[in-house]
Write a protein that binds this DNA or RNA. Sequence first.
DNA 1: TCGGTTACATACGCTGTGTATGTGGCTACC
DNA 2: GGTAGCCACATACACAGCGTATGTAACCGA
Lengths: 202, 202
Amino acid sequence: MPAIRSRREQYSEATRAAILDAATRRFATSGFAATGLEDVAADIQATRGAVYHHFASKKALFEAVLEEQEVIGFRWIERARAAASDPWQGAMAAMEAFLDQCLDPVYSRIVWQEGPIALGWQAWQESEKKYAYAHIAEILAELVGAGLLSPLPEETATHVCFTMLGSAGMALAQADPADQPRLRAEYGDVFRRMLAGLRATG
Amino acid sequence: MPAIRSRREQYSEATRAAILDAATRRFATSGFAATGLEDVAADIQATRGAVYHHFASKKALFEAVLEEQEVIGFRWIERARAAASDPWQGAMAAMEAFLDQCLDPVYSRIVWQEGPIALGWQAWQESEKKYAYAHIAEILAELVGAGLLSPLPEETATHVCFTMLGSAGMALAQADPADQPRLRAEYGDVFRRMLAGLRATG
DNA sequence: TCGGTTACATACGCTGTGTATGTGGCTACC
DNA sequence: GGTAGCCACATACACAGCGTATGTAACCGA
């Protein structure tokens, strides 16, 4: 990769980033269906031509937006987990960090609400497997490996945890801010009790 | 309501039912977005005019289709639960019946895949509250009342169970038929263990 | 049998996606 | 340092699908 880029390349890169940024805001506030590429283009004083130059389709644009959010979320959660002292604490920290992440309305709406709508349930799930899914599987495997959980059907358990966390995040994100602390505590409580069930010998 | 209906009313009722039926098949096989009202109309040798006469919009048509599936599913599950001898068996039977229901590709696709896409996540969830949601809440309350589960935050626990079951159903529905028995057993296993966690005193 | 209503068909406008073509400014080569 | 080519983007257009306004024929009540 060239460390120095031509003026034109820099401009191009900047517009691409601007499109991505505007699209993120639009998708997060108005949703995928209600957002026209015209709107996105207008937000950055450009035309739909520019958008179609950088992205093959509306769906492709959304995928790029989604990918970005996934990466941000992944890093945030992983950092929280890495800071913990032992696997169990790490898993709990990751859970907390995930719930935090979902309180960001952009993240929760793009990833959990609009994702399945824009890409279709199946494609969205495929995309999730690269991030959240793989992440959870790793954490569970570590817990099982450390003897903290009794053996589990990996794929199924991962899927269940994935969904539980996701829906909790969604519910939190959409709740009245005044209720969020209580809800968050409740979800934490239910999760902990359920995980405790997984601790007993299967 | 008049027990006897005029010829015209009977015809009208029949076309409405035919539209509903055709739409159900189309939505279930091609999805909401890829289904045009033209297709639906053509399936029953009619025009889009007929569709718009009976349903206010494409969305309204889908809502009617969804409602029908919900009612069918609800009845099926409730019957299984009612046949059980005690609350715990009833809850387990309801869970099994739900998984059965999800193996029907029409039900699972309409309710769980296309629902959120067609109505938007929020409206879909509202609609679910009338059926699955209320149903689960009732079952959980019964279990708590019978002392089989320790007290729970009702709304939160309902939401978690709702999502767990739904995603399990979806995963089952989309799995290779050869894997379905194994997966189903695994989900049952994980659920039972997690519910066991809820049994301990919170 | 005749006027009104109802069930549907026909025709059209609008919105939004995608695509084909045009253009001006940057870059690279001589 | 002039020019040829390319690249980033704009403009224009084709096309699909939803919704709506209007037409029409069958039916029903008087």
